[in-house]
Simulated scan of single mutants.
Amino acid sequence: MSGIALLLYFQGKYSDVKGTFVASLIAFFVGAASIIYNIEHWSLIKRSGVHFIIMLITIYPILLLSGWFTIASVFDAVKIFILFAFVGIILWSLFFILARIFSW
């Protein structure tokens, strides 16, 4: 996706470049952190907690700096955190259910 952002830049579509690049950063960090779930000797709770902390350190600041949200106060940053956590819980639950269904 970073390559797509670069192509958009060279095509002069500057308004699309930042969003595409931000999405590529998010995809990169989520994908890189997913290897935590391959650590078999850790409990699911430990893997999930470590994954959440990594997402909090990487994805949350990216969301704050992305320009996708208006941040005029600390309350706005808290709302973004709540959205971040809510989406994380939904995605974690969905992938947990899918893993249970397809692990037989």
Rank of each mutant, 00 (worst) to 15 (best):
S2G: 08
S2I: 06
G3N: 11
G3T: 03
A5P: 00
A5T: 01
A5H: 00
L7V: 11
L7Y: 05
L8D: 06
F10D: 00
F10W: 07
Q11I: 01
K13R: 01
K13P: 00
S15R: 08
S15Y: 10
D16L: 11
V17T: 14
K18Q: 03
G19F: 07
T20E: 04
F21V: 04
A23W: 01
S24G: 12
S24K: 10
I26T: 08
F29Y: 10
V30C: 14
G31T: 13
A32N: 11
A32V: 15
A33I: 07
S34P: 05
Y37R: 03
I39C: 10
I39V: 14
E40V: 07
E40S: 05
E40C: 00
H41G: 00
H41W: 08
W42R: 02
S43F: 08
L44G: 13
L44Y: 12
L44Q: 11
R47T: 01
S48Y: 06
G49E: 06
V50I: 12
F52A: 15
F52I: 14
I54F: 15
M55K: 03
M55I: 01
L56A: 03
L56G: 06
I57C: 15
T58L: 12
T58G: 09
Y60L: 15
I62T: 13
I62A: 06
I62C: 11
L63K: 01
L64E: 14
L64W: 13
L65C: 10
S66L: 03
G67A: 03
G67Y: 00
W68C: 02
W68G: 14
W68N: 11
F69G: 02
F69E: 00
F69N: 06
I71R: 05
A72E: 10
S73Y: 01
S73G: 00
V74Y: 10
F75K: 15
A77S: 13
K79S: 07
K79Q: 09
I80M: 08
I80F: 08
F81T: 02
F81C: 00
I82L: 13
L83K: 04
F84E: 04
A85T: 05
A85E: 02
F86R: 12
F86K: 07
V87H: 05
V87Y: 02
I89V: 15
L91T: 11
L91W: 04
W92P: 01
L94I: 15
I97W: 07
L98D: 15
L98R: 15
A99K: 13
A99D: 14
R100D: 04
F102R: 12
S103Q: 12
W104D: 15
W104H: 12
W104P: 13
